[in-house]
Design a protein around this nucleic acid. Structure first.
Lengths: 198, 198, 198, 198
DNA sequence: TACTAATCGAGACGGTACGTCCAGTCTTGGG
DNA sequence: CCCAAGACTGGACGTACCGTCTCGATTAGTA
């Protein structure tokens, strides 16, 4: 984003992002070439290269712009249930064309620094959101006080996201629930023993 | 691997895999083109295309061949410690050029079916190995009897591998230990309460 | 023409030259882009760049190949008439699409060394041919013995070619004859004076 | 030059022409792009396109403006010597950066009508000047009365200019003199025969 | 002297072609 | 029949310019 933003054409910017999303959704990340995006957006290639360093950066900008429409955490009073709900919602979102886009971004992040930074930026927001929900739950006494909340985020989303990314098994809502169920002892305040013996 | 294997040149096969590894380690996955591999291996491009469908397949074959030299699980009698040791060893391995190769394979797996299958095949082996170690620990009473062991593998390696892949934070041995420590209540047989209030 | 000629595809070579000629004839030298030639010839651009440094070089090769079909000098016994005939024939040839191609080559020769050399090579042949005809005429006593024949070529063709190139006036056969007519005293052996006085 | 001239910035006009000359002299005609000229002149591209149809038109305007400083014909009383002197001076001028510019204009004239007209306009002036000198010589009886003077201009300058343009041989003063020397019999009034034999 | 309309600089825009790189296929000659 | 070598078609790359356009900021001529 080197040149001044002032003279930039908002119309072109949106057309490019929308074209990139459409092509990626329809034909996949590999077919999402700068050339195809330019053609579909009715835009010169130079206009893309002027403002974005790679196709991943375009998709990244689109994803970040849609963050408001992102999947938030409900607050029913039961954190474990809320975490499960949100994770299941994310997985459902990933079943749509958005999954293709996110896979592409993760792939790009493995070899491009710009993409890696963008992906981290997005994840940072997601983590912060999750941490906020967990902090509330901690204040309510639903989870242990001594937990590193960012670590908890990793414990919860790591297994789910990883399983989805690497396809080691299908990620259905039941799997999400199983993960959360298994993690309960690690997260929840251990119940006091009221009776001695057994 | 369509044609007959009998006529195949073992020398060429090894040279190709080694060249692919070397280029990927030195110049990265993106620069690991079939053309470059052929040149470095002193091999015709057709020879590569005859036996492998993509560059990811070459690296995959190399990785699978090196599985014997892979990171196994120690058995000190303490599963949690052993899991931590193995995970830390893997992370150390990923700090080397092998990390670059694995990142490339994961990236390829997001868009190519062949790569995805290959990655899953490798992960399956790793999971099985881990499950075996966990089964032993379960038999020894170190972990709960009611656990789905494959789920446990996800719980343990998901957070670690995911954090490494997406770079959301540095993955040092301390982080690995923290993950395992946090997971203890979920995995271990809950201690009987001997006294009220503990 | 860097790589070995042996593996070169003769079919591609001819298709490229013919495409370049056709496009130049139909659409002009400016529209004769490498891209258009490749498309018309059904050839990859790389194949063109592998063997020719510029579009001028392609046309040049075509022109040199067609030299056999070139405009030669008749030998009726009258040099001046023969020179006029040949020059008029050349001008007629230049009225066809070949004129467009030659103009393009001359233009390219003003800014590109490769084109300049090629044009000079072609002109050298033409000059030699003309010199040969002149030498014969000189031996027959039709033109002065003391003339530098290459200079004569310049005297004859310079005015004609130059007038055509720069378009300072239309170059009809009458003009060609006028040039030759005016040059007669300079070329022909001066008649001896048979009578003293006036 | 469509819009009103009154509002035109004389400063910009001169800066553009000077920039075009400078770039053409330093980097050649090919590198003389509108973009480069605009940048060097510190001028918007639109300002150039508003007043000139092409880069050749800019150089043309500069060349025409410098015509006063052009190479005129001396009048020593000996036409042949004067023609040789002027031609030699032109060739010397062409050895400078002006030669590069003129070559560029001739090249452009092969494919662009505007350039062709401009070149013809300039040549017309040169021809007229030469014709004027020849007319004077004719009135003085130095050259034949029956000559078409414009044809004479072609006979004199055609060989020289053509040889320079196409580079068929180096154009030194000696060459210029040789051309004029060879043309003498065609131009000069034939001397009466005073004695037989001679 | 203030108004106002055209020109100015700057540079983004949609395009076209550039010359390069690589994919994946095909051809040639040698073992 | 496999191999090394590498030319082939094809397509995307990222760049350079083209000629058009839209922006304030001058800057002339007019009121």
């Amino acid at each position: 984003m080197s040149p001044e933003q002032s003279r930039r054409s908002e119309k072109a910017r949106q057309a490019i992002i929308e074209a990139a999303f459409a092509i990626c959704a329809e034909l996949g990340f590999t077919a999402t070439t700068i050339e195809a995006v330019a053609a579909r957006a009715g835009v010169g290639k130079a206009t893309i290269y002027r403002w974005w360093p790679s196709k991943a950066a375009i998709l990244l900008e689109g994803v970040e712009a849609r963050r408001d429409a992102a999947v938030g955490y409900p607050d029913t009073g039961d954190v474990m249930a809320d975490l499960a709900t949100q994770a299941a919602n994310v997985m459902q979102l990933f079943d749509s064309e958005f999954g293709t886009i996110w896979r592409g971004l993760v792939a790009a992040a493995q070899t491009e620094d710009v993409a890696a930074e963008g992906v981290r930026r997005i994840l940072r927001d997601s983590i912060d959101e999750c941490v906020a929900r967990l902090a509330k739950a901690r204040d309510e006494g639903q989870i242990r006080r001594d937990l590193d909340l960012e670590l908890v985020v990793a414990l919860v989303h790591g297994p789910i996201h990883q399983t989805w990314l690497l396809g080691t098994r299908p990620v259905h809502p039941a799997f999400v629930r199983a993960v959360l169920q298994a993690l309960k002892p690690s997260l929840q305040t251990p119940p006091a023993c009221h009776e001695a013996g057994t």
